[in-house]
């Protein structure tokens, strides 16, 4: 052991022993850099020290490889084939045919349009609602805040199937509650299934109902993180409630809004169960509910064109990548304008 002791330790231990003459020990200088220790050969279980991390994190990587990476790579492979999952003799390489077909398929572009229309109808009002709800929940006068926060999450854990069934009743053409109210005012009933824009609004309402609570909790968390001093100085400056919200709260939420928009966009590209239940697998007679994900499902599972379905999946990925890139650029611009 003595041999392994580095010179610096030797000095320290020499100093720690009270020297003759009662001189106080000087503190070890922080400026002295310790010399590197000689590597010690460790054996047994300790030899894994530092590598345990790989073992502990491996479940994620194994799961991700099996359920994330391999399916993605495999679907890219399928996209170049006329594919039949059950009969290898029916799998023929077709090169880029599926993608060529996709570019020319008006149904695909219709699905892109529908997806963004539903996204616009659901995301923007949802953001306003969520921020509004969050500011109500933030109010210190509010009693039983935890109960309200819990209640807000309930729509989120309700099954989509049940939500769609209930909303299907609300939006019924002849006996639906919404049309009943519209009828009371003397207007014609709206067909929320066959008419495109009302249909998109109906689906967007379901999505908003399901996600607004979740998002308002995120906005609430961001609001609670705003330093209290800002509000206090705003109050001293004589700012009204609205002015405080507009010039203090809202600018501080910029990053959260960006987060909400990114997550909302990705979620918007995955809208599936609501249009499936309202319009069937084809997305309605005019394909008015055919969203990108539903279109993928229709191609693969109803029309049994698996290769084409995989190509649609890749197209969705590319769209997500483009949108993420745009989001990233906007976020960077916001960040740089802050400085």
């Amino acid at each position: 052991m003595q041999l392994e002791q580095s010179p610096i330790d030797a000095v320290d231990s020499a100093q720690s022993a009270p020297a003759k003459g009662g001189r106080r020990n000087a503190a070890p200088s922080p400026w002295r850099t310790p010399k590197p220790q000689k590597p010690v050969a460790v054996t047994g279980i300790h030899s894994l020290n530092g590598r345990w991390a790989y073992l502990f994190t491996s479940p994620f990587f194994i799961m991700f490889t099996i359920f994330g990476l391999i399916p993605v790579v495999y679907s890219v492979y399928i996209a170049f084939y006329q594919w039949d999952p059950l009969d290898p003799s029916m799998q023929t390489f077709v090169g880029l045919d599926n993608f060529k077909f996709l570019i020319e398929d008006s149904n695909f572009w219709n699905a892109v349009r529908n997806t963004f229309s539903i996204w616009a109808f659901s995301t923007l009002p949802q953001m306003a609602l969520a921020i509004g709800l969050a500011s109500i929940l933030r109010n210190p006068i509010l009693r039983g805040a935890t109960v309200w926060r819990t209640l807000l999450l309930i729509p989120n854990i309700t099954s989509v199937l049940a939500v769609a069934l209930v909303f299907g009743q609300l939006f019924g053409r002849d006996y639906g509650m919404i049309n009943y109210v519209i009828g009371l005012f003397g207007f014609d009933h709206i067909d929320f299934v066959e008419d495109t824009i009302p249909g998109h609004i109906a689906i967007a309402t379901m999505i908003t109902w399901r996600w607004v609570g979740y998002n308002s909790l995120i906005f609430l968390a961001a609001m609670l993180a705003i330093p209290q001093e800002l509000f206090e100085s705003a109050a001293i400056d004589g700012a009204s409630k609205w002015q405080t919200f507009r010039y203090v709260t809202l600018p501080q939420l910029k990053n959260t809004i960006t987060f909400f928009l990114i997550v909302g966009t990705i979620g918007g590209l995955q809208v599936f169960a609501e249009p499936l239940i309202l319009g069937g697998a084809g997305g309605g007679a005019n394909r008015q509910f055919s969203t990108l994900t539903l279109f993928l499902f229709e191609q693969a599972f109803i029309n049994v064109n698996w290769g084409y379905g995989a190509a649609v999946g890749i197209a969705i990925t590319i769209i997500v990548l483009i949108i993420s890139a745009i989001n990233f650029m906007i976020t960077r611009r916001i960040a740089s304008s802050d400085n």
């Binding site: 019924g172 002849d174 006996y175 639906g176």
Partner: peptide
């Protein structure tokens, strides 16, 4: 026809 889809809520109420 009344143009209601089978198993929709309008159909059941109808």
């Amino acid at each position: 026809g009344t143009r209601v889809a089978q198993f929709s809520s309008d159909w059941t109420v109808g």
